[in-house]
Amino acid sequence: MRAEAILATRDLTIEFKGFKAVDGVNLNIEQGTIHALIGPNGAGKTTCFNLLTKFLTPTKGTILYKGRDITALKPAEIARLGIVRSFQISAVFAQFTALENVRVALQRRRGDSFDFWRSERVLTRYDREARELLEAVGLADYASVRAGELPYGRKRALEVATTLALDPSMLLLDEPLAGMGHEDVDRMAALIRHVSTNRTILMVEHNLSVVASLSDRITVLARGKVLAEGSYATVSSDERVVEAYMGGMHA
C-alpha cells in the first residue's frame, strides 16, 4: 500500500558532455516521510538534488510535485510552491544577524519586499516570530550575533530556522550533517526529526547511522542510477549496495 507521492521523478536524466551524472532516475517521495538519498562518492546525489531544486536543468525526464509537472519552473518558483532547499556549504547571510536572517525569509512570505520607500524599521514587526523560530532551533541567545560569526553547527541550525520561516511543505536538505562534530550531529538529527512533523523531508546524507535512525525510506544511488530502495534494513542487506560501497572504498 503506497501513500501518495508528494514529489516524484520520471526518468530523470542529466548529461554532461556524454557523461550521464543522473541516469533515468525514478523517485517517489511519500508525503510526510523522511526520505534519504545515499550512495558512494560520485553517485550523482548532489546532482540529483540540484535537479530537484532546479539549480540544474535535466536533459530529459520530468519532476512532479503533488502531481503537477514542475520540470520547467525556476528555482525561486519552486521555493514559492513550498519546496525549500538547504545547501551543502551552510547558506546564511553572513552580514546579517541571526534575527535578520530569519526576518528576510519572513519578509518574503508576507510580500512587502519591494517597498523601497519605507523604513526598514517596519521589519521589526517580524521580530517576535523570528525570535520564536530561533528559539525552536536553540538559537535564542544568538539573535543579535552576526551569522558569519556563528560556529558552524549554529549556522546550520540558523539555516533551518530561516527555512522554517517559509513554512515549507517539503524540505530538501543537502548533507545537513556534513562537517559537524558529535554533539552537533545529535542536535541536528533531533532538529530534523522535530521539523519533520507535518512535513516531507528529502535529504542527501553520508552519515549512515543517522540515516538509519531518521529515515523512513532510503534510495541508494550509484553511478547515476537507482541501485536499491526501501527501508534501512532492506537496503543495507542488499548485496549490490554493499558491493557499491565497498567497491567505492577500494577504488
Binding site: 546564511v92 552580514q95 535578520e100 521589519l123
Partner: peptide, 14 residues
C-alpha cells in the same frame, strides 16, 4: 534602509 534594501543586501550576500 528599506525592506527592499534588506533583500538587496541579502542577494549581494548570498
Amino acid at each position: 534602509h528599506s525592506p527592499f534594501g534588506q533583500v538587496l543586501r541579502a542577494i549581494r550576500d548570498n
